Computed example of a mutant assay.
Amino acid sequence: MTAPTLTTTTTKEPGRTPAPDTGGKPGRGAFTHALRRNLTAHGFLIGAVLCFAFFSWYPMVREFVLAFQKTEDGRTTWAGWSNFTTVFNDPAIWQAWRNTLLFTLLALLLGFVVPFVVAIVINEFRQGQGYLRLLVYLPVMLPPVASVLLFKYLYDPGYGLLNEVFRLLHLPEQQWLQDPDLSLLSVVVASTWMNMGGAALIYLAALQGIPGELYEAAELDGAGLLRKIWHVTIPQTRLILLLMLLMQIIATMQVFVEPFLLTGGAGPEGSTTTVVYLIYQYAFNFNNYGAAAALGLVLLVLLAGFSAAYAKFSRTDEE
């Protein structure tokens, strides 16, 4: 009979060599094995970071530098705040900001509310939701130029489909893109149709995550459709609604493609001139890259302010 000991003996398994004692430190072989195992993942990650740095971070840094420089006769000199002075002394800047803010407001009234309503309607269907989702998302899959050309045909004052419908209804025909009072609204309608599919699907995913017991409890309390939407649907999707509101504000304040292709950018009497189109004019029509970068930096600071306000509001709401 042997006495018990404080040390444990290691039983050597047949055919297996015990691992060498490294003093509690990971061996070089283990590190090499881990590196080799994750080499592919690290390669993809490094490639993504390099692409993001080259196409996103570098242009932002370059824009910041250009905003304080001026190039004349091939020579680049530091201009201080003169580019910002040039931008804010331009009479077109205030009209561009007014049009941009008005476009954002109208786009939110349509592009923020309509996709949410569409998602609620689709969510009520028990069959055929896949076809409805495809139908709603189809405009997003179309190339923007094709969608804009489609609306340019619809808005044509001579043979456009909208004016044909107005003739059948004995209503006065409209100059949709030629009238300063209608051109911006026409661009908003086209932009909403082109971009609402993605927002509608995000809202639909949020709606399908709401527990059905909440609606059943609301029905037992005698709540109708509107009260269920107000007291159940909106509170349960509040964070998604706020996030989409921020994303749509950022997107609509950078609108360029729709007014550029539908009205040539400026539109009748400058009614569709936006801030991004004015940046385009400074850079490619006036060859004033410093003023374009300065105006772009102002827009960046404004949108960053919206993002910071959203982050603070969402953090306060969670607490």
Rank of each mutant, 00 (worst) to 15 (best):
G27A: 11
G27S: 13
G27L: 06
G27Y: 00
R28M: 15
A30F: 08
A30Y: 11
F31P: 09
T32W: 13
T32Q: 14
A34S: 03
A34I: 12
L35V: 07
R36M: 04
R37M: 03
N38D: 14
N38S: 14
T40S: 12
T40V: 12
H42V: 02
L45I: 10
A48V: 15
V49T: 10
V49D: 01
L50A: 07
L50F: 04
L50M: 02
C51M: 14
A53W: 05
A53R: 06
F54Q: 03
F54T: 10
S56I: 06
W57P: 01
W57L: 15
W57E: 08
P59I: 02
M60D: 09
V61T: 04
V61D: 13
R62T: 12
V65M: 13
V65Y: 05
A67F: 00
A67I: 06
K70I: 12
K70S: 13
K70P: 12
E72F: 09
G74A: 05
G74K: 00
G74T: 03
R75Y: 07
T77D: 01
W81I: 15
S82M: 09
N83W: 02
N83Y: 00
T85G: 14
T86S: 14
T86D: 13
T86G: 13
V87Y: 07
V87A: 08
F88M: 10
D90Y: 15
P91D: 06
A92M: 12
A92H: 14
A92E: 13
A92D: 06
A92T: 09
A92Q: 09
I93W: 06
I93S: 02
I93Y: 01
I93N: 04
I93P: 10
I93K: 03
I93C: 03
W94L: 10
Q95N: 14
A96D: 01
W97G: 01
T100N: 11
L101W: 10
L101C: 05
L101I: 13
L101T: 06
L102R: 00
F103S: 06
F103P: 02
T104P: 01
L105T: 04
L105S: 03
L106P: 05
L106G: 12
A107W: 13
A107V: 00
L108F: 15
L108M: 15
L108Q: 04
L109E: 04
L110A: 12
G111S: 12
